[in-house]
Design a protein around this nucleic acid. Structure first.
Lengths: 198, 198
DNA sequence: CTTATTTCTTACCATACATCAATGCCACTT
DNA sequence: AAGTGGCATTGATGTATGGTAAGAAATAAG
């Protein structure tokens, strides 16, 4: 239980195992069923979730009732609205499970303590934030400059695994197009002998 | 010289003034003329820039030669490709001056030292990163879900000052539309008695 | 002050993508 | 086996935004 999280903290985070044992007591592991909502718009979301197994997503719903997917979080990813936590503001997203998922519930104290205990962990955590920012900037760059097709091709390159696990309409939502449009894009690509999965 | 940066570190960053004096020796202030390029695609950008006065921007150029603006940085903002620094990868952006600008050139060591010296500064810095992430996520949400008009209205609300200082074609570029389209959007708004500046 | 250059607007047409609606497909139910 | 619901595909059509080109307006340059 919470095996991935443990190795994640050690390998990626650089947190010495001694400290993990010291901190682990405050951790909970949660099982979330497909479709279950973890956090709703307007709530104050106090926790981050580290996905042990399964797939979570965050998304907004516009006035027309349409969902727009902000982020996918498969295994070994964090998802949260930490801004909501840090600034004590109501969340702007929904958070739910795309697949049956087990996730580690991480509260602010855990991170604070981990940061206090290990300088390495602090640095790596900082790096990860920067990486996240870079990632978001790249996505913005695609959204303001690239066609639906290019965005889709980019998605395939970045998340080949998600491609198989996620319904198309969610990918469309993530890309900022309609499912119908994505279907047509795919048709076009297929006509030009493009093989995504091979 | 570097007055804003000093008060920024103190007020927003929470860095005790003692430490500032200790660190300030490594700081340079740079004058950048309108249009001058600070960093180009493919370079490794070693520095962050804190804008004392003026306006910087980061942008990409696509295959068609079109610019896409990733970020504006007016007074008291940071701009950089810290990912490029941290991961030692070539930058994906250009960085140049929209107006004549004076900026503080901040290297990695400065931040590292500041973080080492003050826990408060470290925490605030962390918060700022999260704030940046939230900000980028909101922009993504608009790009995947909102019309050109809505995005423009949002821009006005968020950056009323930039509205006046930046040529329209740059705003269009930031919003992911053409200058012509922005012009039409504005015409529409004007026809409906919308007054952005009053 | 006059001329260049850049930026903004407008009009006309082209295109990418959205919308709506119908159909087919598959996995589950019962 | 037939019914149900969620997804994907397809076609017809609508709409927002892009492309091009020209002129007006603003800004910079000489």
């Amino acid at each position: 239980m919470s095996v991935n999280f443990r190795t994640y903290l050690k390998e990626t985070g650089g947190l010495p195992e001694v400290h993990y044992d010291q901190l682990a007591s405050s951790l909970q592991v949660k099982t979330i069923k497909k479709g279950e909502i973890l956090s709703s718009l307007g709530e104050i979301c106090k926790y981050s979730f580290f996905v042990e197994e399964g797939l979570l997503r965050s998304y907004t719903v516009d006035e027309a009732g349409k969902e727009h997917i902000i982020q996918f979080a498969p295994e070994n990813w964090f998802i949260s609205d930490r801004s909501s936590i840090l600034f004590d503001e109501p969340s702007e997203f929904y958070l739910d499970a795309v697949e049956n998922t087990t996730a580690v519930v991480v509260d602010e104290n855990f991170l604070k303590n981990a940061i206090a205990l290990s300088a390495t962990f602090r640095e790596n955590n900082n790096k990860l934030l920067h990486n996240h920012i870079r990632h978001l900037q790249k996505r913005i760059n695609l959204l303001i400059g690239a066609s639906a097709e290019k965005r889709y091709l980019n998605f395939i390159k970045l998340y080949p695994d998600l491609l198989m696990r996620v319904p198309q309409w969610m990918i469309a939502s993530y890309l900022g197009i309609t499912p119908e449009s994505l279907s047509r894009v795919r048709k076009e690509l297929a006509a030009n002998n493009f093989k995504p999965t091979l």
